[in-house]
Design a protein around this nucleic acid. Structure first.
Lengths: 216, 216, 216, 216
DNA sequence: AATGAATGAGTTTTCATTCAT
DNA sequence: CATGAATGAAAACTCATTCAT
């Protein structure tokens, strides 16, 4: 199978997941999305579980690539950009679809070890990213010392929670967007108190405006 | 149908959801859990979707009632208890199973309006609860003034995110438990800076130990 | 059970049959039509088959009563009126419903001896009615001699066929109405050649206009 | 699906319909008749209704083809053969079962548009067949002029009515068979008076004996 | 006399998976 | 490589019937 063929299948899984939801997803749904027979899908992937595990793997690989390459800007900027990265609007359908698919896969983690181990890997990567930024900031004297692991966990959990709520609740509950409100709160309440005297944090708007290349 | 009979069915749905997960839940699973025939279930609820919607509704009603009777203890205590309420250990299998099932239902929100509207209601309730505590605290002079809505959203998102990660990742990634680490971080980084001079926050251990009646 | 109660049930069977058709008719359909529980229906009639057999019996009793009492008008008039009696328009919903119900029951005859014997009784009655008229007409010299049984069978089959086709095909195929066209053909081709010289047949319009009391 | 495979399914539907009747027909019945799983049936036809509609359509297509090849024998013979074609004995179980099933389907016409439209098509076809014969006969000078449409409707209704009564009443009421008696009556009373002087009608027995190839 | 609740047996339909071609 | 066809197992749902009250 060429890479292009595989991409096509993976795209189809994402589309089908988006349209039907995990619980109602059938091989037929996926097959229709990429103009293939279900038998062809089974030729490439032995079971539905295999196919979905591969899909999740691809999903997280993408995610990771986007996290990488933060460049060498000051830690405050990096942290602010990291937080801003989670913000999306109620009309950012691609993003919603992506994370909804991810959420549906995530909820299957406890039932499928292959899925769970990918999730653990991705969690470790996310927290390490934040931890690295924090560590660099403390080392540079830009941040006052903190419990790095604890803070990283806090940041990641908070942003994940905001995203999950925005995706599952839709735009009704927090019209400005759950992620936006929570990201701002994080900056005000967590990041600002962390800054050493004389260190300035770029405004949220600035960071959102000139989104660095890695913040898709 | 008497209330007792209905309770029995709802309990069975909960149990079955815990054992099988949302995506794999069958009417038969539920029927077995309450020693009934599937036909009997269909006698009371026309469709599986109806039954699950009723279950979710009942769940949130319970939730609501538990959140309601917070009593008249000082706001600091209430806030600390609220945060502590989310903490559970990696071995609290029942809670994990329950919230996993709930997470699976949540990921169906975008596909099922009945589910989504219940989720929105529950979100509103949670944030209102925190907002009320904050408001009371500010009014009493125990908390320094803050943006109440913003802070409530932050707290709820953070705790939800921690819970979701703990459930989906298992004990591997944060052995003490994601919820525990994040709850402590929240208290240290968010609640403490909020306290007016002279106001003391009960220690986390204290609150966890004598969990008030409303913190199941 | 009072007669009124039973009438109510029978009406409900007719209504339900009309709405759902025999193949899709359920006890629940009937129960809903008369605001009763299915258990109540089973209290009065042991089985669904019993209930339907009773329904058919009532149906045919009605039918018979309408056939009776032809009075003592001349045989030509009686025969013409008998034929005209079968004519109904594409908008005569009551009549269509009645005969549709009857047709659906009739198609079950071969599967249920109770039904079949009622149908045989009704057939005998219909043919005897025609035969009596023919016999009287021949005796009176109004009709030329014919094979009475054969002619009666022909008349009954023809009118039944026209009615069945009109009911099952709807108004599309023969806009004036199958029964109307065929009844007219019967009069032109069968009755007229039967008349002795000097005997006049009332026009079809006349008979249709002043429908005698027994031709509902 | 090859034509042969489809034929096999259609034959199975016919057989199952004969054995069980329309109201009691299940997919399982059909599946057993052709040594297939019900799932295989559903692979070819999405729903039971689709399958039955296809069956009815195929039935009428066959019918059409059989009616088509009437050859170029004289109109009198054609008309006589057409009428004779409807005759069957009280012991012709296969035909009884088949037409009973068809009658059950017909009584579903008012509830199922797909069925009804096929019935209308079949009605049109039958009447056109008779009308064509009559027209040819009149043109050839074998028949005296008549209202062609009216006469065709009369013939079709009569034969249909006789068949319906014979099927639903069984052999009790008209031991020689309703269709036989009525067909003879039709010939005596309708066809014979139609013949131009010098034109002879083949005897009923003759036609019944050497049934032409198109009279199944 | 009537009902709400329940059920067992069955119905259509779905779906991941297999396999000959 | 890919497909059309097929299947077994299970799914949701239906329905006539029963029974305690």
């Amino acid at each position: 199978m060429t890479d292009g063929d595989n991409d096509q299948i993976m795209t189809a899984v994402g589309q089908a997941l988006r349209s039907h939801g995990y619980a109602d997803l059938t091989m037929q749904d996926i097959a229709e999305e990429c103009d293939m027979s279900t038998a062809a899908l089974h030729y490439h992937y032995d079971t539905k579980a295999d196919l979905l595990a591969a899909f999740l793997e691809g999903l997280l690989d993408d995610y990771e690539q986007r996290l990488a390459g933060r460049g060498d800007r000051p830690p405050v900027e990096q942290l602010t950009a990291f937080i801003a990265w989670f913000v999306f609007g109620p009309d950012d359908e691609d993003r919603i679809a992506f994370h909804l698919a991810l959420l549906e896969m995530r909820s299957q983690g406890p039932h499928d070890e292959r899925i769970r181990s990918q999730l653990v890997r991705s969690d470790r990567l996310l927290r390490d990213t934040v931890a690295d930024i924090l560590e660099a900031g403390v080392a540079a004297g830009d941040f006052t010392p903190v419990d790095i692991e604890q803070t990283a966990a806090l940041v990641v959990a908070t942003l994940d929670g905001a995203r999950t709520r925005q995706i599952t609740l839709g735009g009704d509950s927090v019209p400005e967007g759950y992620t936006r409100v929570v990201a701002e709160a994080l900056l005000d309440r967590l990041v600002d108190p962390l800054l050493a005297p004389g260190v300035d944090r770029p405004s949220f708007e600035t960071v959102l405006a000139d989104a660095p290349e890695w913040a898709r």
